[in-house]
Simulated assay, not measured.
Amino acid sequence: MASGFFAILDDIAALMDDVAVASKVATKQTAGILGDDLAVNAEKATGFLSSREVPVLLKIMKGSFINKLIILPVAFLLQFLYPPAIKLILILGGLYLAYEGVEKIIEYLFHRKKEAAEVIEEKENDENAEKVKIKSAVTTDFILSIEIVIIALGSVLDKSLAIQILTVSVVAVIATIGVYGIVALIVRMDDLGYKLIKKSNSKGLFNAIGVFLVKALPIIIKALAVIGTIALLLVSGGIFDHNIEVIHQFLPEVPEMAKQFVYGIIAGLISVAVVSGGKKIYLTVKK
């Protein structure tokens, strides 16, 4: 009886060792997408009132966990029933990311100036704007989460089902907690800075660090907006490059990152044109 119990413990310990090793490999495989995930979500989680930053971030993080709870069983089921479906889902997700990235660029280049009435209306509808931004962040997270789960799953396909499930689950949890933990630190930089300034009575090293943190936050937020947009296009271009053989073989002499960025831009322009045309047709028919 006792020997049987200890045998089970040995099996569990061996399984955990295998999962630890597999998780390390899978995390390395997803490191690139996690970096892009961080940049995109940090940009999505900024731009709110200071008092709303943490509550908004918690809502996005909750949505991220729900995303992964949906994606994990579906990914394993599709991998078992019809593996090509995963590739199709990735490509559709890539189109969405490309659309969002190019839309941001178009918005920045051609729609930066807003009428005063529009600005006032936005301020009066901060709650609605917050909900829209949270929804957008969770939707983008869904696409990036699919990419993370698929890459992690692909790194352990030669393992047993138990190791696959545990490894991909571990990577999903690490991705969510790690990414949003770092995002939380970024968006609260100014509060920490103000506390250091106050505690040091505006003197000495702590005051200098506090002033640096306060002044650095707006710069970091602007940088994240740019990096997040580039990340969207790189992730989308990477999806097309890795999952569409014809595209993968195209422009072999061009550096991979530059090639993927171009793919993201092209896909985004096509997506924006299709969506804009669809909206115009819908409005015309509606009239």
Results as ranks from 00 to 15, higher is better:
residue 105 I to A: 05
residue 283 L to F: 15
residue 120 I to M: 10
residue 112 R to D: 08
residue 78 L to D: 10
residue 95 L to Q: 07
residue 221 I to C: 04
residue 214 V to T: 09
residue 263 Y to Q: 06
residue 30 T to M: 02
residue 113 K to D: 13
residue 203 K to S: 09
residue 14 A to L: 06
residue 204 G to K: 05
residue 174 I to A: 05
residue 158 D to R: 10
residue 250 F to H: 08
residue 104 K to C: 04
residue 39 A to E: 07
residue 219 I to Y: 10
residue 58 L to N: 04
residue 129 A to K: 14
residue 207 N to P: 04
residue 147 E to Y: 08
residue 206 F to W: 06
residue 16 M to S: 08
residue 175 A to E: 03
residue 208 A to K: 13
residue 87 K to I: 11
residue 282 Y to R: 15
residue 125 N to T: 13
residue 109 L to Y: 11
residue 216 A to M: 09
residue 63 G to P: 02
residue 236 S to D: 03
residue 21 V to W: 02
residue 244 I to E: 05
residue 227 I to Y: 05
residue 153 L to K: 05
residue 203 K to V: 08
residue 117 A to H: 14
residue 71 I to T: 01
residue 124 E to K: 14
residue 71 I to F: 02
residue 185 L to C: 08
residue 21 V to T: 07
residue 227 I to C: 00
residue 1 M to T: 09
residue 260 Q to D: 08
residue 70 I to V: 13
residue 21 V to D: 07
residue 64 S to Y: 07
residue 245 E to C: 00
residue 166 L to C: 03
residue 152 A to K: 00
residue 33 I to T: 11
residue 50 S to P: 00
residue 156 V to K: 01
residue 89 I to F: 14
residue 182 I to F: 11
residue 14 A to C: 03
residue 32 G to M: 08
residue 21 V to E: 06
residue 155 S to N: 06
residue 189 M to P: 04
residue 247 I to T: 08
residue 271 S to C: 11
residue 14 A to S: 09
residue 8 I to M: 07
residue 262 V to A: 11
residue 284 T to P: 03
residue 276 S to C: 13
residue 234 L to A: 05
residue 275 V to I: 15
residue 149 V to I: 10
